[in-house]
């Protein structure tokens, strides 16, 4: 399964203290994202990654602990329509 983020011009992100407000142009919906969601979108990019590769990519840049249930966060982004899985 490859997970992909929308193209950069599909999102309008405004960091507001506790979260990042993201306007998603194709849907017209606003999403309120907290760590590590914006980081996940950034790492996935348009070409997409598998879950294992995403974990590796994030581990290079951030301190990931077992408690960060990456698969669950990813499924939330899929359900919100911000990440497509195929």
């Amino acid at each position: 399964m490859i997970y992909r983020a929308p193209p950069a011009d599909a999102l309008l992100a405004e960091p507001i203290d506790a979260f990042t407000a993201v306007y998603h142009r194709p849907s017209g919906q606003t999403h309120l994202l907290v760590e590590p969601a914006p980081e996940i979108l950034d790492a996935l990019g348009r070409d997409g990654l598998t879950l294992a590769k995403l974990r590796a990519a994030l581990a290079e840049r951030y301190d990931l602990t077992e408690a960060d249930d990456l698969a669950e966060r990813l499924e939330e982004l899929v359900a919100a329509g911000l990440v497509s899985a195929a």
């Binding site: 309008l12 405004e14 507001i16 203290d17 506790a18 979260f19 407000a21 306007y23 142009r25 017209g28 919906q29 606003t30 309120l32």
Partner: peptide, 24 residues
């Protein structure tokens, strides 16, 4: 905090969702 205000104001707006990007 601005984030709390944002959440409360989206709930207090009757046309936020309809306006799309200009509303955001």
């Amino acid at each position: 905090p601005a984030s709390e205000a944002f959440v409360r104001l989206t709930a207090a707006s009757t046309n936020y969702a309809n306006l799309g990007e200009p509303g955001f």
